Simulated scan of single mutants.
Amino acid sequence: MYSLEETLQQWRKEEFQAALEMMEQAIEVNMQKNEIMKQQDCAEFFNISTNTLLSWVRNGAPEIRLESGMPLYNVKSIQAWLMEHEH
């Protein structure tokens, strides 16, 4: 039988794990809701490297370029571009 302290410690671990899972899910949902992303975030969204993303842009994937030179990407536009190039 567990002592009160061991039971409490186990409960804390379980609660922490549950909270961590909820936060990870919330981050994933938030990332999916954000259509406009920075380069690294967009690459992570598609689970590719930034070099692959840049290759896609060279091949016609849409890119938003701010006056400052910062590139941004509309995830839905890139998804549409990918679907157009599906074989």
Rank of each mutant, 00 (worst) to 15 (best):
R12V: 11
K13E: 14
E14F: 01
E14D: 09
E15Y: 03
F16G: 01
Q17E: 15
A18G: 03
L20G: 02
L20M: 11
M22G: 06
M22D: 14
M22V: 06
Q25W: 13
E28Q: 15
V29W: 09
V29L: 14
M31K: 00
M31D: 06
Q32L: 11
Q32S: 13
Q32M: 13
K33L: 15
N34Y: 07
E35L: 13
K38D: 15
Q39P: 06
Q39I: 14
Q39K: 15
Q40F: 09
Q40D: 15
Q40S: 14
A43R: 10
E44D: 14
F45T: 01
F45L: 02
F45E: 05
F46A: 01
F46H: 00
N47D: 10
N47H: 06
I48A: 04
S49M: 03
N51G: 12
T52W: 00
L53W: 07
L53T: 08
S55T: 08
W56V: 04
W56R: 02
V57C: 05
V57T: 10
R58G: 14
N59A: 03
G60I: 07
G60Y: 07
A61R: 00
A61S: 04
A61L: 03
A61D: 02
P62G: 08
P62H: 08
E63A: 10
I64H: 06
R65E: 02
R65K: 08
L66D: 04
E67M: 05
